[in-house]
Amino acid sequence: MNAPGGPERVALPAGLADATRLRAALDQDLAPPALHWLRESRARVAAEPAALAGLFPAVGRRCGRGVLTTLPDWLTEDAARTVLLLALPPHDAGLPPEAASCYHDGDAEERRAVLRALPLLDAGDGGLALVEDALRSHDTRLVAAAVGPYAARRLSPGPWRHAVLTCLFTGVPLTAVADLERRLDAELVRMLHDLARERRAAGRPVPPEIPPLLEHFARR
């Protein structure tokens, strides 16, 4: 189900690289052999989508696992895998089935890359099942990737609120949650109040990110 007002093509928020910037960052950082491999692989995926299954796992070994110099919010392997996903032809169902397969058949790093690519793919609601699966995993790498711009635009209010709570329960910083202040509503505030009260009653610390959120909502 779409979040209210969500467009069919997800708008990219400030700070998240679009496809052109992502490719430019890779062009700058990758050594010539890795860049040549990535360009050849991208062309191969565009011509033969089934080839992605064999190329996707090889990205970390071929392109490296460091942080991009000009886009430090991106790991090189996530960016390179996103470039391969963007080479897939559009699909009537939104998310190309080859992209979904890369998630379901991949390890945690490969799954994280698919989740990070969702805002850049014209996936419609086709990626929601992947986001929901990642949130159920409680793997902090996947949870942090799942609560990005795609979830902010596509998750309906109930699942989105529970995604925020999942971050708190798993220790994922709320800075990972895209558009948190925009989507903060009275029901989530109530849930945060309840969580803080339960923590205090149990003699446990309240997550330090909760009070500023409650204060922000009170000032609106």
Rank of each mutant, 00 (worst) to 15 (best):
L155Y: 10
G124P: 11
L16M: 07
A53P: 00
C167F: 05
V177D: 02
M1S: 15
N2P: 08
L121P: 04
P32L: 05
G148P: 03
L55G: 07
A123M: 09
Y103F: 08
A186P: 00
G158L: 15
P97I: 01
P159Y: 03
H162W: 14
T20M: 02
T166K: 13
R116E: 01
A178S: 14
D122A: 15
L128N: 12
A53F: 00
A11S: 15
G126E: 06
R39W: 05
L118Y: 09
R219H: 14
L30A: 07
V131H: 09
L174V: 11
R39G: 07
W74G: 01
G64I: 10
A53L: 11
L195E: 10
P119R: 03
A134R: 12
V45R: 05
T82A: 04
A178K: 10
F217A: 15
E48L: 06
T140S: 10
D139S: 08
L155I: 12
S137G: 04
L30G: 03
R42H: 07
C167W: 06
I210M: 02
V83Q: 06
A80R: 14
G5M: 13
G158V: 14
G5T: 11
G64L: 12
T76S: 08
S156Q: 15
R39Y: 01
F56I: 11
G127E: 09
R61P: 00
P212H: 07
L68V: 03
R141C: 08
R220A: 11
L86M: 01
L75F: 05
A50I: 00
A113S: 12
G66S: 11
Q28L: 14
R116I: 02
D139E: 13
G203R: 06
C167D: 06
Y150Q: 09
W160L: 15
A176P: 00
G66E: 07
L88W: 04
D125Q: 15
A31Y: 00
S156E: 15
A3M: 10
V59D: 10
R182E: 14
D133N: 06
R161Q: 10
R65N: 13
T70K: 13
V10P: 00
L142I: 12
A178P: 00
E109M: 13
Y150L: 10
D27A: 06
P57T: 05
L88D: 02
A34N: 05
A152I: 08
D73R: 13
R197M: 11
R9Q: 15
D107R: 12
